[in-house]
Simulated scan of single mutants.
Amino acid sequence: MSLLPPEQPKAQHELSLTRLIDAPRSKVYRAWTEPQLLAQWWGPNGMTTPECEMQLWVGGLFRTVMRAPDGSEYPNQGVFLEIVPPARIVFTDAFGPGWVPSNKAFMTAVVTFDDVHGKTQYTARAWHWSAADCQAHEEMGFHRGWGESLDRLVAVVTTQMPD
């Protein structure tokens, strides 16, 4: 059961990215929900994801560590708020496991996978608590970084995953 209406209006402090992917949504959803697949594409070009842990249930852990070419690491941890296979995943860094509030909530991500004649209309939305956080995320390179991640995701689901 989804907590969000099917046509959620744009949030006040939202950044988003949408693309039609030439792969069925079951494959795109799998690439998002299987740690060994997510690790292949998560992060912008040049980054790797040596650590990815998922507890795929509401309140379950979603943790990644991205590594830059210079060895710098960028850990992220949060929890899943909603999981509707194969249609939607919602996660946030506002909480950790056990619903313990994080030190600094930055965003909630809503990722949807809509079937369009066997292809996937993919939409990733990043909701922020403030205009400042939204602007900071945009200045960090949200569109470039999430776009490059999406390019990598498309490569995984169209060339590396069997049907």
Score class of each variant (00 low, 15 high):
T64W: 01
T64Y: 04
T64R: 01
V65W: 08
V65F: 07
M66E: 00
M66V: 00
M66N: 00
R67G: 00
A68N: 08
A68L: 11
P69Q: 10
P69R: 03
P69D: 05
P69E: 11
D70S: 09
D70P: 03
D70M: 03
G71S: 05
G71W: 10
S72D: 09
S72C: 09
S72E: 14
Y74M: 12
Y74L: 02
Y74T: 07
Y74A: 00
N76Y: 12
N76I: 15
N76Q: 13
Q77K: 05
Q77H: 06
Q77I: 09
G78D: 05
G78I: 05
G78T: 11
V79D: 07
V79F: 04
V79K: 08
V79H: 02
F80R: 00
L81M: 15
L81W: 04
E82V: 08
E82N: 09
E82R: 05
E82L: 08
I83L: 15
I83A: 04
V84L: 15
V84S: 11
V84P: 02
V84F: 05
P85A: 13
P86C: 14
P86W: 08
P86Q: 12
A87V: 13
A87Y: 11
A87L: 14
R88V: 00
I89A: 04
I89F: 05
I89G: 01
I89N: 03
V90Q: 10
V90L: 13
V90Y: 08
F91N: 07
F91M: 11
F91C: 04
F91T: 04
D93F: 03
D93M: 02
A94D: 07
A94N: 10
F95V: 02
F95Q: 01
G96I: 04
G96S: 11
P97S: 14
P97Y: 03
G98I: 06
G98E: 06
G98L: 06
W99L: 01
W99R: 03
V100N: 10
V100K: 15
V100E: 15
V100D: 08
V100M: 15
P101T: 05
S102M: 04
S102G: 11
N103F: 10
N103L: 14
N103M: 15
N103I: 15
K104W: 12
K104H: 13
K104G: 06
A105Y: 10
A105H: 12
A105T: 09
A105M: 13
F106D: 09
F106I: 15
F106C: 04
F106S: 10
M107S: 09
M107C: 13
T108H: 02
A109K: 00
A109P: 01
A109I: 10
A109R: 04
A109V: 13
V110L: 07
V111H: 11
V111N: 11
V111P: 02
V111Q: 12
V111A: 13
T112F: 02
T112D: 08
F113L: 07
F113I: 10
F113R: 04
F113D: 00
F113C: 03
D114G: 06
D114I: 08
D114W: 07
D114E: 15
D115H: 12
D115Y: 06
D115I: 03
